[in-house]
Design a protein around this nucleic acid. Structure first.
Length: 585
DNA sequence: TACGGTAGCTCG
DNA sequence: GTACGAGCTACCGTAC
């Protein structure tokens, strides 16, 4: 049994707050009356209960009965720290229902994810509680009818219990995070309020409310243009699909029938997939592009993809905006993942549909070659650091050294090839894969012999990269696993070579982006500017026209500050532009 | 009919 | 000796 007090009287509610006067932070949870648990609507669904607790007391406030209490809660929730599980959810509802926006938070879900050594581990409150305390909490009431006039004793007991377990898991998570030494000292209000010393955790916690606001704001989209494009593409696709089936007698989306037709009727030679069946993927067909039927097949497939993406986007538009969901730690590296819809893999062609509304502008900013810069800093490669310091284009620079020609004389194609080498080789790509990678991604044909030569020359030029790979290989062959860190101190135990070399680079990139977002949130103050999308090394801000220049300045300052904290030897560069649409840079 | 795995494409 | 990290759709085999 959990001790709690259920409060549905304003006077009693206000009085109860005296018990929290001395606390620096409180434990919080909310229960929401939703129309559909499958499709939670943060704008129209209503918060029923707000549970607040400290070390001694747990109060359950019935917000259906005392809505006026919100203004008192706003006072303390925006001033004190708040501990909760998956607080992005609660923050969004507190914001839409009561205009309450807690910013000093400790999220136990995020903490658990940061500590996790196993990517398959679950991080629900139930799972985390079970792992840390062996206490198996009952979640059957979670999706009960929170809109009922009279809540049952079970419901109230359940609501209080979530706060009780928060109280138990918080100190365990905090102390485990504090046991990890991070190269940068934790500072700021989150560090001070919770006694949280882990710099990565401090950044992640400060990021939670920022992400909540990004989701609520949504990405602006030109609904009219999206609809008309959908109509046009749909008609064109149907016409071409029918024509293709009529002339070839084959369904272009049945891999089995397509490969049989390509090899049998057209006499093509096709590579095998991993499981041994014939592959008809575009990269395998590219060399047969001069055969009209093959070209038509490729075009139909690509138009179908376009059509599907248009449909997906269209289905998510609400009042001219798309409110995608972000998982804050979508990958172990700290990168986010976006879904419903994924706004992180929108093609260049479709980016023009994302337009600032009337009277607004978009600011599109992205770090330049950030992973290479991070890699140079991380392995402390003098040659690469020098090249970056001199403001050289690294792809051109690599090409000039590998091909042994002057920097100025490197052709566009040679630069493209070096780009493939730079990105591939810092992660230990093999010569064979390099050859395929260069062809598939950069349209550059090189022989296996050339690939082997370039592979060797890359490591001869960038000696620290060679030493890095050797050292990782050595450690992994000695033991089954090794622990790797980002430049901020994000930690992971890895078992494979590729993970060991990728994690610090990609992870530092996400550290940097999250820090930049946190800085922007602090610096922008009252300017009417909101982040509307994040794509790994890119920040997109929507801002009122008159503040566009100011917001651009603040965004630049934020990105620079984040970059300079993590990169001491390599200069940070980024592009920032004020635009109407999220079109090509 | 529902679910899980794979292939193939998009992005950084 | 090995590029890495995601999401979404379609297909296909398996379980109910």
């Amino acid at each position: 049994m959990t001790e709690f007090t259920y409060i549905f009287n304003l006077e009693e509610a206000v009085k109860s707050l005296h018990d929290f006067e001395k606390d620096k932070y409180l434990f919080l949870d909310t229960e929401v009356a939703v129309k559909s648990f499958k499709e939670i609507d943060f704008f129209s669904d209503k918060v029923r209960l707000i549970q607040l607790g400290n070390a001694e007391k747990i109060y359950i406030y019935d917000m259906f009965l005392i809505p006026e209490f919100a203004k008192y809660l706003k006072e303390i929730l925006e001033k004190k720290g708040v501990v909760g599980h998956n607080l992005k959810f609660d923050i969004k509802f507190l914001k839409t229902n009561f205009d309450i926006f807690p910013q000093i938070v400790f999220d136990t879900m995020i903490a658990s994810q940061l500590l996790s050594e196993n990517s398959k581990e679950k991080h629900s409150l139930q799972a985390v509680t079970y792992r840390l305390t062996d206490n198996n909490i009952d979640k059957t009431q979670q999706s009960s009818a929170w809109g009922l006039r009279n809540l049952s004793e079970e419901q109230l007991e359940y609501a209080a219990n979530d706060v009780k377990v928060l109280r138990e898991i918080f100190p365990i998570l905090k102390s485990r995070l504090n046991q990890i030494n991070t190269p940068h000292k934790a500072t700021g209000v989150v560090h001070e309020t919770f006694g949280l010393d882990n710099a990565v955790a401090v950044v992640e916690m400060a990021f939670v409310p920022q992400l909540a606001m990004i989701e609520l704001k949504g990405m602006p989209v030109d609904e009219k243009e999206l609809s008309s494009m959908l109509t046009t593409v749909s008609a064109d696709y149907q016409r071409r699909y029918i024509e293709f089936v009529r002339s070839s007698g084959v369904d272009p989306f049945s891999p089995h029938k397509v490969t049989a037709w390509l090899t049998g009727r057209l006499g093509l030679k096709l590579p095998k997939t991993q499981k041994g069946s014939l592959s008809s993927q575009d990269s395998a067909l590219r060399k047969y592009m001069d055969i009209p039927q093959v070209r038509q097949l490729i075009e139909i497939r690509s138009e179908k993809k376009l059509l599907d993406k248009l449909k997906e986007l269209h289905s998510h538009v609400k009042n001219g905006r798309i409110h995608s969901q972000f998982r804050q730690i979508g990958a172990p590296t700290g990168r986010m993942a976006s879904s419903q819809p994924n706004l992180q893999n929108i093609t260049k062609e479709l980016r023009r549909l994302f337009k600032a509304p009337e009277g607004k502008k978009l600011i599109v900013a992205d770090y330049s070659q950030i992973e290479l810069r991070i890699a140079a800093e991380y392995v402390n490669d003098e040659v690469m650091i020098k090249a970056f310091s001199e403001g050289k284009d690294l792809h051109r620079f690599t090409a000039s050294l590998i091909l042994d020609k002057s920097y100025e004389k490197v052709s566009k194609e040679e630069r493209q090839m070096a780009k493939a080498i730079n990105f591939g080789l810092i992660y230990g790509i093999s010569p064979r894969s390099l050859m395929e990678y260069a062809r598939n991604n950069y349209g550059v044909d090189i022989s296996l012999k050339d690939a082997q030569e370039f592979h060797k020359r890359f490591f001869d030029i960038y000696l620290s990269f060679k030493r890095w790979h050797e050292s990782v290989n050595q450690k992994l062959s000695k033991k089954h696993s090794m622990t790797v860190y980002t430049l901020l101190g994000r930690k992971m135990t890895v078992h494979r070579f590729t993970e060991a070399v990728n994690f610090p680079i990609q992870g530092t990139g996400s550290d940097m982006l999250k820090m930049a977002v946190v800085f922007f949130g602090k610096l922008k103050k009252d300017i009417d500017a909101s982040i509307v999308n994040l794509v790994h090394d890119e920040i997109i801000v929507e801002v009122a026209k008159e503040y566009a220049d100011k917001a651009k300045e603040i965004l630049s300052e934020s990105m620079l500050r984040a970059g300079k904290i993590l990169l001491k030897k390599v200069p940070v560069e980024f592009e920032v532009e004020i635009v109407n649409a999220w079109a090509e840079k």
